[in-house]
Amino acid sequence: MAKHTIERKVRWATAAAYLASSGLLGVLAAVQDNTRILEPLPDSISPLLLAIVPGLVTFAAGWKARHTPRPDLDRQE
């Protein structure tokens, strides 16, 4: 049985999700408590904006990371 490695894209997206859920959410909570920063936004939009930021960070990390080379999939049998 071949040993499968975890692709870089998955590792980077996982790390970004962890960092976004721990550190970034703390920053976003502080921003949410500071009403002057979110004042220009409608009340219905600000929670959506704060909730979507960690997902966008995760998506961007997965998008930017390169694929792990898989020479075993390049063979034509």
Rank of each mutant, 00 (worst) to 15 (best):
T35G: 12
G62D: 04
G55I: 05
P71T: 07
L24E: 00
A30W: 11
A16S: 08
L19E: 05
L50E: 02
D43R: 13
A20T: 01
L48F: 07
L50T: 05
P71D: 10
K3A: 13
V27L: 15
T58D: 01
P69E: 07
V57M: 08
P69I: 03
A16I: 04
G55C: 03
H4Q: 12
L24S: 00
P71E: 11
Q32L: 10
T5W: 03
L48W: 08
R75T: 13
S21C: 07
V57C: 08
D43K: 13
A13N: 01
L56N: 07
S46D: 01
A2D: 09
V31T: 12
D72S: 14
W12I: 02
D72F: 10
T68A: 04
V31L: 15
P71M: 07
W12K: 00
L28D: 07
G26H: 12
V53M: 05
G23H: 06
L24Y: 07
A17K: 02
I45Q: 11
R66A: 13
D33E: 14
I45C: 06
V57Y: 00
P54V: 00
V10Y: 10
G23N: 01
A15N: 06
I52H: 03
L73H: 11
A20V: 04
F59E: 02
V10W: 11
L19D: 01
V57W: 02
G55Q: 05
Q76D: 08
Q76R: 09
T5C: 05
F59W: 15
A2V: 06
P54I: 02
A30D: 12
Q32G: 13
H67K: 13
L28F: 12
A17H: 04
T35D: 09
L41Y: 15
L41E: 10
K9E: 01
S46G: 03
S44L: 07
K3F: 14
Q32I: 06
F59A: 01
A13C: 06
Q32K: 14
E77M: 11
R8K: 15
A61H: 07
L41V: 10
S22L: 05
T68Q: 14
W12L: 03
L41K: 06
